[in-house]
Nucleic acid binder design. Structure first.
Lengths: 190, 190
DNA sequence: GCCACTTCTGTCATTCGGTGTCATGAATGG
DNA sequence: CCATTCATGACACCGAATGACAGAAGTGGC
């Protein structure tokens, strides 16, 4: 069961994230101080840092959880499937689950350099784990797993940028398909 | 001719960068304050920020200049050459020009998260310019140019990581060749 | 050499992100 | 009911970064 403490903690964290996102989208990330967020949420500046290790981290969370299970889903793919197809399928599933709120967050990230940097950092960590999972599943050497996952990351990046270029009406999944098709590496069929 | 002011400025900037790199490699980026660097170089902390916009920027410079002319070299490639081959050739040339000092810098960057973030940010800007140059030269749509340059960036990343994995004896150019060969996208031969 | 004019520099003060400390009060578990 | 744990706020502190100002030094014209 979830104790009162745990529930309160999650509630405050969600409240802080919501307040922060609102202020950020309204005035821009750099024009909002941690004190602003804390005061708007009715807590002290010190308490903010008890819920988030850094100011940037108040933005992630809705995005972060999604990236965690990609490695698991990857190991659950059919055994004979080529690695590139596995990555494509899993990531296609992932972009399909991105909801409207996450898209607003992604836009904020895309236009804020410091957030972009933090985002790339997290994505790189995730990519590293995914590469390890892929190497274990398909018995690939680390270099090849690195190549495949990095290329997949590039595909996601390009699809994301193209989606931002075209506006929210474009279909992200279709853009990702195009990117994966165009980028299919030579090493998938050795 | 270069006036005394200009020469003095470059000298101080180089001195600051050298001192900073020495302290960073010795004690780690986060364990060195700007005051430390400034004092070791015999200037005030305030003056440091007149030469570099941020602490991280004292590390780049030896690396940055190299990335600037990649777009130019790209436009100078033979007209009929496939885009992927052009990127391969130019970047191969680029890694070949990386000297020992730059390698030490790269190692420092690779093991310092905040430097990595800054580095990725700069590389992304460079990639964007290169994509524009490539699109203009080979009359590609922005999306395809994006895909090719991002994949090339992934190749460089993977080669760099593999090089760090294997130690300084490995040949970076050869690793880059392998990455580019394995990653050759399907869209190079439409 | 002398004199404006610009640029560089150090000093001081300030903002902001982030951390350590400590006392207080509330939740928890027996 | 009581001892322990945990969250909180208040305060001080560090380091990165910026603005303001005064003085030193280079630059160009006379």
């Amino acid at each position: 069961m979830a104790g009162l403490r745990e529930r309160a903690r999650r509630a405050v964290q969600a409240e802080l994230a919501a307040v922060a996102l609102e202020l950020f989208t309204e005035r821009g990330f750099d024009e909002v101080t941690v004190d602003d967020i804390a005061r708007a949420a009715g807590v002290s500046k010190r308490s903010f840092f008890r819920y988030f290790p850094a100011k940037e981290d108040a933005v992630f969370g809705g995005v972060q959880v999604m990236g965690d299970d990609i490695a698991d889903q990857l190991t659950a793919r059919p055994a004979g499937e080529p690695p590139w197809e596995s990555l494509h399928a899993v990531l296609r599933d992932w972009v399909a689950r991105i909801d409207a709120e996450s898209r607003a967050t992604l836009r904020l990230i895309e236009r804020t350099p410091s957030l972009r940097a933090r985002f790339q950092q997290r994505r790189e960590e995730a990519r590293s784990r995914i590469a390890a999972a892929l190497a274990a599943r398909a018995s690939l050497d680390p270099f090849t797993a690195d190549l495949l996952t990095s290329a997949a990351g590039a595909a996601v990046d390009c699809a994301s940028r193209e989606w931002l270029r075209r506006g929210p009406d474009a279909d992200p999944a279709h853009l990702l398909d195009t990117a994966f098709t165009h980028l299919r590496p030579a090493c998938t069929t050795p």
